[in-house]
Amino acid sequence: MWLYEKKLEYPVRVGKKDLKMAKYILTQFGGPNGELSAAIRYLSQRYSMPTGRAKGVLTDIGTEELAHWEMIATMVYKLTKGATPEEIRRADLGSYYAIWDKGIFPSDSNGVPWISAYINTMGDPIADLHEDMAAEQKARATYENLINLTDDVDLQDGLKFLREREVVHFQRFGETLDHLQGYMDGKKFF
């Protein structure tokens, strides 16, 4: 069961309308290293974890990623608010608008739809945790690219928050990997 909280995890502010930036940020909504990939990855992998800790970490981080997915959509929503078709065309977003209007479609910055092939559920806890740690680093790098693409300090504030969360998740997954390795070594010898 999941509960929806009618609030964002962290305030999303935007200094000005910026259609190009909305397009770039869209990749964290439905791109390979985005928040949807993260949530689906962790929430799918948890079923084959052997310990309560690993199940808990994947459940909790997967749930937090859904909150980040909502923050990303909020950024796109606010960056495109009030945009006219003419402005959309000038920002080179005409091809997106032709298909999706101002709907927020889970795709990358180039409009490529989200696919589950971005993630894996190996059923092998060690392989899955390694993927998760790599995924957090890829998401961190993507946020750094996005921060470099804008000088809007309000927008940067939200992006920096999300970048920081990837660092914390990486840390927690690393501890979970150590714990799983210990658990599996113990099983082998007893």
Binding site: P11, D60, E64, H179
Partner: peptide, 23 residues
């Protein structure tokens, strides 16, 4: 009031994840 809720919840999310690996 919303900011207060968000700030406290953030601290609890952080502690929750930490406790998951340091029970």
């Amino acid at each position: 009031l919303l900011r207060e809720v968000q700030e406290l919840e953030f601290a609890l999310i952080e502690l929750n994840l930490y406790l998951d690996t340091h029970p």
